[in-house]
């Protein structure tokens, strides 16, 4: 066997698996979306029927809000952890990256423990404070799994910024505020775009967290789930999945264009 033949043979198992379980199913999903009476017009229906359109808008709104909140919190914390060495820094970093391995359902349960009927806030404050199953609860859940992902991207980029730039700005008389606005944020901009795109994509596609918290909220993954399981409207479930998949895929392509790696989209 020649070297070239051996290399091709190495690729064969993966090629077969990918063809059978990724390429063909995705093709089936796309074809399946056109199999209802509406045909390919089903994609028009998403924009015409208030139920789908409002779910789409609500999902985008929550995801955008989470993206900006996670960027603000994680950039602040990330810059602090990169620029300061102190006892306990490692522990703080471990805490902030801990949720990376939590499935979306566990994140949802964390929010129930904070804002459910037996939750921390309700037991500490007087009156009735149950927000776990509201849009705000969903926002907190998405924020919970977005903070670690954004933090890692921001910290990796911040470590590459030359501290001499800040020192130069300082000797030229710049205030800390001006240093952040004129030196750090421009240098971090590509990483912030990448991290924001990842956070947005993850929030758009988050099923586990929504499954635990959004029993009464129409976000896209929950609508797809109910269309498929309860309404048995396979064509619409497929069409919505295709739209969702295209949006998240485009977001991650943007992220890739602005920085090297991508972090797993779970939640």
């Amino acid at each position: 066997m020649t070297s070239r033949q051996f290399v091709m043979l190495c690729l064969l198992p993966l090629a077969i698996f990918t063809m059978a379980f990724l390429a063909l199913p995705l093709a089936r999903l796309i074809m399946g979306s056109g199999e209802s009476e509406a045909g390919w017009g089903i994609y028009l229906q998403i924009l015409q029927k208030p139920r789908y359109l409002s779910a789409l808008l609500q999902t985008v709104t929550v995801s955008v809000a989470v993206t900006f909140a996670a960027l603000a919190i994680s950039t602040t914390a990330g810059l602090f952890l990169v620029r300061n060495q102190f006892a306990g820094r490692g522990i703080l970093l471990s805490i902030l990256t801990l949720p990376l391995a939590f499935p979306g359902v566990v994140v949802g349960f964390m929010i129930i423990l904070l804002g459910g009927r037996q939750g921390l806030v309700n037991s500490l404050l007087p009156g009735h404070w149950v927000f776990a199953y509201s849009v705000f609860g969903l926002f907190l859940g998405y924020l919970y799994f977005s903070i670690p992902r954004v933090l890692l991207t921001v910290m990796a980029a911040a470590e590459k910024i030359d501290p001499a730039l800040e020192e130069a700005a300082l000797t030229l008389g710049a205030t800390p505020y001006r240093i952040i606005m004129d030196v750090l944020l421009p240098a971090l901009a590509p990483a912030l775009v990448a991290a924001g795109a990842i956070a947005f994509a993850t929030a758009m596609g988050a099923f586990g967290t929504a499954f635990t918290l959004a029993t009464d909220i129409d976000v896209l993954p929950m609508v797809i789930y109910t269309e498929f399981t309860l309404s048995a409207n396979f064509a619409m479930a497929s069409a919505l999945s295709v739209v969702l998949g295209l949006v998240t895929w485009a977001m991650l392509l943007i992220a890739r264009a602005f920085s090297g790696g991508t972090v797993a989209a779970g939640g």
Partner: peptide
């Protein structure tokens, strides 16, 4: 090819599962 096998990182698991369910 690397991009293609990385699609499951970009597409939500729910959509992938629907694709598998409809075919198999």
């Amino acid at each position: 090819l690397e991009e293609f096998i990385s699609l499951p990182l970009a597409i939500p698991g729910l959509a992938l599962a629907l694709a598998l369910l409809q075919l198999y």
